[in-house]
Amino acid sequence: MSELIIQQQGAVLELSLNRPGKKNALSQHMYRQLTTALSQAAQDNSIHVVLLQGSHDCFSAGNDLQDFLGAGELNSEHPTVQFLYQLARFNKPLVAAVAGLAIGIGTTALLHCDLVYACDNARFQLPFSQLGLCPEAGSSILLPQLAGYQRAAQYLLLGEAFGAAEALQMGLVNQVVDSSSLTALAREKAAKLAALPSDAVQSSKALLKRSSAALTLDSIAAELVQFQRLLNSDACQQRIAAFFKR
């Protein structure tokens, strides 16, 4: 069974996380697949929009920690690092459909999406400090820009979970619907985007992101330095060991 289902519907490329036994936690293999799919989509003129989704009851539980810890230093060859930069640089519209858990990268990846739709059972959390770690994927700059400093601190420092209503209020998601409507709505919006002149849409996206693009990339780089340092710390190792004992 493929852990990432890739299918093209007209000018929309659908990337569906498909690791139900692990609540769609991302393995290094999945990161490689996602990076390759986004890289190819960026160059494929037949693809105008990418739709990222999980299952009907779980978007993603974040990193597969055990797999992640065995992948080595966070350098330019690391699959997670390659995915983060590919995501930040992706030039075409990204639409996300979120149901159930969206933990860690399951939430921070949404900060790079252009349109995000969630169902009312969505639950978001950024538990980095709880694991003795720091923000990633540019979230240290993107979340304060979106939600304001105090709310970003609440979610990134305390790691408090929040629901779909809060995500809608802060602007992380565009619309909240019931679970039976989520996939249809996301596909409808993706198809609507894909039907527009692609050059105009991509140019508009680039203009919307022009003031923050370089800062986002700089933030990812700075976060990775601190993330690696903290990952090697005793405090983090103790927290992770406790996580695996639960």
Rank of each mutant, 00 (worst) to 15 (best):
A109R: 11
L111N: 09
C113A: 11
C113F: 07
A118R: 00
A118Q: 06
C119A: 14
D120L: 05
N121G: 03
N121M: 05
A122Y: 08
R123P: 03
F124A: 00
F124H: 00
F124E: 03
Q125T: 13
P127N: 08
F128C: 09
L131R: 10
G132W: 04
G132D: 06
L133N: 06
L133W: 11
C134F: 07
P135R: 01
G138S: 03
G138M: 12
S139T: 05
S139I: 05
S139Q: 04
S140D: 07
L142N: 08
P144E: 09
P144R: 08
Q145W: 11
Q145V: 00
G148P: 07
R151S: 04
A152W: 03
A152I: 03
A153C: 05
L157V: 14
L157P: 04
L158K: 12
L158T: 11
L158G: 15
G159Q: 05
G159A: 13
F162K: 06
F162Y: 13
G163W: 05
A164M: 01
A165M: 14
E166W: 05
A167C: 02
A167R: 00
A167Q: 02
L168R: 09
Q169S: 14
M170P: 14
G171A: 13
L172R: 07
V173K: 06
N174M: 07
Q175G: 04
Q175T: 12
Q175W: 05
V176R: 02
V177Q: 10
D178C: 15
D178F: 14
S179K: 12
S180H: 11
S181A: 15
S181L: 15
L182P: 06
T183G: 02
A184P: 00
A184N: 03
E188N: 12
K189D: 04
K189A: 08
A190H: 01
L193E: 07
L193R: 00
A194E: 06
L196D: 08
L196K: 09
L196A: 08
L196M: 12
P197D: 02
S198F: 00
D199Q: 11
A200T: 15
V201R: 10
Q202F: 01
S203K: 12
S203N: 15
S204H: 08
K205N: 07
A206L: 09
K209P: 01
R210S: 15
R210P: 00
S211C: 06
S211R: 12
